[in-house]
């Protein structure tokens, strides 16, 4: 799908009335389409070809690509580097910015740099602790948190000011995102935390993996009762699990991922566990779509990025719509 006013790759679309970014991701959501985003695996290399090859797996299947910011505190190519490479080709990128590694001076500089490179979307995260990654001896920065970072970016965009109050001559035109984990304690606080993120500037929300649909349904009902569905677009996090063993490892070792026993049992009972993981992901997409207020899905297919095409096609998440892809 191409917009009539499609620019040359690397340049922004005209900003429509009521929009804050020149990006196609915001356009898709505001047009009421069910959006699909996916997480790209950042390479442990300095070769741009690695990035292009990984992005190509998503061509024609996703509306925007999240470039993670050394997730799990493991060192990889930076989100900024990946976004810079891929925006040049015209991809709609979501820059993930965690508060773990950079202070407010570095973060604000990166926000201007990213916007200048054609990034239209930023996902503000607190970030995983350094203890979970491959450099546990590193200094955790956490000068900001996800919510103060959101209000910082919003101020840069809407008031054209740095946190210091110094003016910005040309502001970053961004669509702001935040994460939500409906599955971590204190459960009653989670909808309020999302409200707080929206009050701080979040326009879209990408959730943690949703394997516990009942819990997610409850969360979404609470979110609706708080009147948040009119204020932000919610993309439910989903993803394929490679096997029952992998799932069990993830829930024991990856912070914030909640996988119910029933999911593990379903995988363990299958002949081809990897295929069952893909089928489960497709089932989950169909189930979250039925929940009021879910505007899209965010697919995190860790080490199974090559299965995203199958997941999107078989779940019909795009309703036959064909997202933008680079010209061949």
């Amino acid at each position: 799908m191409k917009f009539d006013d499609e620019p040359t790759p690397g340049e922004g679309l005209p900003i429509l009335p009521g929009h804050t970014s020149p990006g196609r991701f915001e356009r898709i959501l505001r047009a009421g389409k069910f959006a699909v985003t996916a997480e790209i695996a950042p390479p442990d290399s300095a070769d741009p070809a690695d990035v292009f090859a990984r992005a190509a797996l998503f061509d024609g299947y996703v509306d925007a690509i999240n470039a993670t910011d050394s997730s799990g505190a493991n060192c990889h190519m930076s989100s900024m580097g990946i976004c810079s490479l891929l925006t040049r080709k015209g991809y709609a990128m979501i820059l993930q910015q965690s508060c773990r590694d950079r202070n407010r001076i570095a973060m604000q500089g990166d926000i201007l740099g990213a916007a200048a490179m054609g990034v239209c979307n930023i996902l503000c995260l607190s970030g995983d602790g350094v203890q979970s990654g491959d450099h546990p001896e590193a200094k955790p920065v956490f000068d900001m948190d996800s919510i103060s970072a959101l209000s910082m970016v919003r101020r840069m965009r809407d008031e054209q000011q740095f946190m210091s109050g110094r003016p910005i001559s040309s502001p970053p035109r961004l669509f702001l995102g935040a994460a939500a984990n409906p599955f971590a304690p204190p459960l009653d606080f989670r909808p309020h935390r999302m409200a707080k993120k929206i009050a701080a500037g979040a326009q879209f929300i990408q959730t943690q993996y949703c394997f516990d649909i009942e819990r997610f349904r409850t969360f979404m009902a609470q979110v609706r009762d708080l009147g948040l569905l009119e204020k932000a677009y919610v993309l439910a996090g989903v993803g394929p699990l490679a096997s029952a063993k992998a799932a069990d490892w993830i829930r024991k070792n990856v912070a914030g991922v909640h996988i119910p026993d029933a999911v593990i049992d379903r995988l363990a009972g299958a002949q081809d566990q990897k295929q069952e993981g893909v089928d489960l992901c497709i089932d989950l997409i169909e189930q979250v779509r039925e929940i009021e207020g879910v505007s899209g899905v965010h697919i995190m297919a860790y080490r199974m990025e090559d299965r995203i095409g199958e997941i999107v096609t078989r779940s019909n998440a795009l309703d036959g719509r064909e997202p933008w892809r680079p010209a061949l």
Binding site: D145, S148, A179, P185
Partner: peptide, 13 residues
């Protein structure tokens, strides 16, 4: 993480 605005998503069950 010195978070001043609420819990992160990593809180254990």
């Amino acid at each position: 993480k010195t978070l001043r605005n609420g819990p992160c998503g990593g809180v254990r069950q």
